[in-house]
Write a protein that binds this DNA or RNA. Sequence first.
DNA 1: AACTTAAAGGTCAATAATAGTCAAAGGGGA
DNA 2: TCCCCTTTGACTATTATTGACCTTTAAGTT
Lengths: 145, 145
Amino acid sequence: MRRSITDRIEQYIKVLINRSDLQQIEIQRAELAETFSCVPSQVTYVLSTRFSYKDGYITESRRGGKGFVRITRVKSDAGSCSRVQADIKDLIAHLKEDQHLGESEARLLQDLLFTLFMDLSKEQRHLVLSKLVEAMARYSGLQTD
Amino acid sequence: MRRSITDRIEQYIKVLINRSDLQQIEIQRAELAETFSCVPSQVTYVLSTRFSYKDGYITESRRGGKGFVRITRVKSDAGSCSRVQADIKDLIAHLKEDQHLGESEARLLQDLLFTLFMDLSKEQRHLVLSKLVEAMARYSGLQTD
DNA sequence: AACTTAAAGGTCAATAATAGTCAAAGGGGA
DNA sequence: TCCCCTTTGACTATTATTGACCTTTAAGTT
């Protein structure tokens, strides 16, 4: 049973994503086409038929020198939710302590952040969370100065 | 991940700004070009494509002896006009209108969300933003009931 | 002070390096 | 055979890199 080039490229990309840390890889379209001895536009075809948002992926790209195609798997992972939610609660608690937020604003922010995180993969959540911590640190710094 | 010279220069500048106290740095165009082994006009290219006012930065310069380029990250309310930032502003404004947030809480939330969004890709931003809108709608619904 | 020179940074257009689009042609299975 | 998915390639769009030439500023000279 001989599989099509499209199928083989699809599998190849999925393996790379599985091996990645952040459910995200970057490829060069022309290079990948070279690897599979096909025209570059076939890679575009694979992306649009197998890696659409409906399929659970986001693709972005940049043209020009050192251009790339970035493919990200967006998948929620209920298991890791509780951990990150706990972290968010901690952060909110700190902001309340420091008088930056009142009770109802804190609940609003917490609710927003929970919802915000729900559709990200586990790895993405941790990335975003670290950004949030950074932002809070910076904000606190500005406030106390 | 960051491949092109333009990307590396962008990253370098952002690190310097992050380390600075006043969200502001001064560089010498020729020296920076030397560091990255490129022509000076490439630095100008980086500034115009990555550090425009729309991107949330102000750049000033002086020619001649002891010349410099000064790059300043401006505060969010100064009018960072990217699409997503504008959307966030809208959302925050609605919450203020509906009395869910006071002035200072609104500013805190806006600052947090901006920072949060900075390192997400464009596609991720739109995904996350839609979640944010959902959360806000849900929150508003709960409040008015 | 007026002039000159050297030392910055700015502009712009050409070229190179990627990726996207779209429609036509190909091919294999129901 | 016919349909649908795949494969191809010519043309387009976007982004990065480079270099020749221009403008501004500071410092030195007369």
